[in-house]
Design a protein around this nucleic acid. Structure first.
Lengths: 169, 169
DNA sequence: CGCTTCTTTCAGAAATGTGTGAAGTTAAGG
DNA sequence: CCTTAACTTCACACATTTCTGAAAGAAGCG
């Protein structure tokens, strides 16, 4: 159960295979959580890369997929603010970076989600009225989402504090 | 913008149609959030039902799908603790109930999720080692998940308190 | 300004998911 | 017990999603 890398010489293939295993396992869990497969694989690969960034060609080769697939995945990831795209100076290559504050941003996206849900619940409450069991039940749900939205802010603040505290070295 | 039900007589069809619109809209948002379509529709329908419970036949008719589809959806929902199944006394019918503490339970499920992720991240950290950028980056993610898990507990406590406070009548 | 390299777009093939009908299983009620 | 109502399981058809290959579109470099 102790197959961590023993030394970092001559075992380039083993290393690559080990990285791939981690990437695929992590990607699978992201998929379980609702992310599309290719974006999940790309994100996991970037997270596991030394610099936290890879080019389209590198992703294409490592994941064994066409450049077209990488293109689509990256477009999505950029849209939801999980990666940024940067031009490599003096080249047509583009590098895709994972952001240091990835999860923070992902959580904030979730926040927008919550607002949509609240709108729907609000309409449900108005439709049924608070004098019906359904109306009250849906209103409970609405309250819960409002509560969650409010809490997310302070939660991220506590995370920032926690991280600063444990940062130094 | 004020098309709530005006009175509760003679407009059974309009009412049914309005309920259906709400159910489908809510279900669509659950799907967006990653839930499969049929479980989402069933859950939304139960939430919108007067008693918070419906039989298989009622669901089948209201959602215009086969009993088989309902069966599969309910199996999933029961597995993730979003509904419970009860036998109607003196009948072969079964009623499916939404639990009053649905979201609470859903969150707790999410908790189990987080633990799986932590295991994967832990393996990643061991694989790369904290002396590599990747290792440190993955470790950050691990820390974030640990933080989230810890926070979820107190968050649900605050929710319980908040709800008790606004309960009375 | 044209050549070359890299990325994107798009139509279609392959894989995956989703719901149905029919047969099977369980248990109430005569 | 046998009948019958209700739910479940399973194989298959249909729909959707996902990835590819080919061609077009940008942008560096001579």
């Amino acid at each position: 159960m102790d197959d961590r890398r023993t030394d970092n010489r001559t075992d380039g293939d083993d290393e690559a295979a080990a990285v791939s295993r981690f990437v695929e396992r992590f990607a699978a869990q992201l998929v379980q959580a609702g992310m599309a497969r290719m974006p999940a694989r790309v994100f996991a690969a970037l997270l596991s890369s030394e610099q936290g960034s890879l080019t389209s060609a590198e992703l294409s080769e490592q994941l064994k997929v066409s450049p077209a697939a990488v293109s689509g995945a990256v477009r999505y990831l950029a849209q939801v603010n999980l990666v940024t795209r940067e031009r490599e100076p003096g080249s047509r290559r583009e590098r895709y970076h994972v952001r240091g504050d990835q999860w923070h941003n992902a959580l904030l996206e979730r926040d927008a989600f919550l607002r949509n849900w609240q709108t729907t619940m609000q309409e449900g409450v108005e439709q049924f009225g608070l004098d019906t069991p359904q109306g009250r039940r849906i209103n409970d749900t609405l309250e819960f989402f409002r509560f969650l939205e409010k809490e997310l802010g302070s939660l991220m603040q506590r995370w920032a504090a926690h991280r600063a505290e444990h940062l130094d070295g």
